[in-house]
Design a protein around this nucleic acid. Structure first.
Ligand SMILES: [Zn+2]
Ligand SMILES: [Zn+2]
Ligand SMILES: [Zn+2]
Ligand SMILES: [Zn+2]
Lengths: 166, 166
DNA sequence: GCTAGAAATGTGATATTATAACCTTTCATA
DNA sequence: TATGAAAGGTTATAATATCACATTTCTAGC
């Protein structure tokens, strides 16, 4: 994985969005499911933001876009997207983000969450894997999954503390 | 911090419990608050278990012990205990554990959570700190806090998969 | 095309986790 | 023993997540 980076406020975001949806199609083909209208809609709302959104945020946005969806439907769509790896869950926020890159399944992902703007960057930092493996080995722990999240200020917010959103 | 370890099913748990409550007294003196009856009761329920308990689990246990407490009261007690460092929150479970050791404040804590028995071990694995620092630096991220949690099977459960609780 | 089974979604209710607003009690200290 | 701050009580409600069951949509096989 590349160096972790926070998207610049003025990056070509339309590209992010369409890349995300294109990747979704092939991910579902490979995984053996279907990118349904609902799932695509949910993914679109997440991909349209680099911020972590709660399930009910997604519902509101879909509603604003003219589509009323029940919580359970959104959760089911999110579950499916999570399984396929198109979406990540940010545990410390009870929120979700669209994944903007492919991952090496064997490596845990470190999420960097900006407290000011809510933007999330992903990192595959080398060395992390080894340290975690050591910890597991020392404790005789059979590792299944990891949750790695850092909170703080992204480079775009650090300079102008006190603001909300880019 | 010592090597991360899962407490053996037959360890001297009474010692854990009284150590935890003794430490609580001095922690509050140092931090400038008071270990009130309510806070001690909440801590006692958590310390009586090495498992992560939800706030409502704590309420039930207190209730079973003859003490009815409202959710908000337990959450307030938990907030206080968290501030003083006597309790940790496990984000991936929306649950809490009593801390069974003192921590170097400058280092993040890695929690190892057993999926079978719910027991949680703490690790201060060397190398983790450096890897996290690198990730933050690479992303120009101003680090505030970290959440590090691993799930899997503890050494006591790995051998007898399918069981619940020790 | 038609149809049985599987997968996905809809519907309505409800469970679980957490906090708001406001009032009363407890406690340190002067 | 008055006083203010900290802690806790009471009631209501917000925010997050899931259950149970009906309906619709899709896929295969005929
Ligand atoms: Zn973008
Ligand atoms: Zn930011
Ligand atoms: Zn113990
Ligand atoms: Zn276990």
């Amino acid at each position: 994985m590349a160096k972790p980076r926070f998207p610049a406020p003025d990056h070509d975001h339309q590209a992010c969005l369409s890349a995300s949806l294109e990747r979704a199609e092939s991910a579902y083909v490979e995984a053996g499911g279907r990118l349904t209208e609902l799932r695509a809609s949910v993914l679109r709302e997440l991909a349209a933001s680099h911020q972590a959104l709660g399930a009910y945020d997604v519902i509101q946005r879909l509603s604003a876009a003219g589509r009323r969806v029940a919580p359970i439907s959104v959760y089911r769509a999110l579950d499916s997207l999570l399984e396929v790896g198109l979406v990540h869950r940010i545990e410390s926020r009870n929120a979700f983000i669209a994944c903007h890159e492919a991952h090496d399944e064997s490596r845990p992902i470190l999420f960097l969450v900006c407290d000011a703007c809510g933007t999330v960057a992903e990192s595959g930092e080398e060395g992390l894997n080894e340290a975690l493996g050591n910890a597991a080995r020392n404790a005789k722990f059979t590792l299944d999954d990891t949750v790695l999240e850092m909170t703080g200020l992204c480079e775009h917010c650090a300079g102008r503390e006190g603001t909300r959103g880019h």
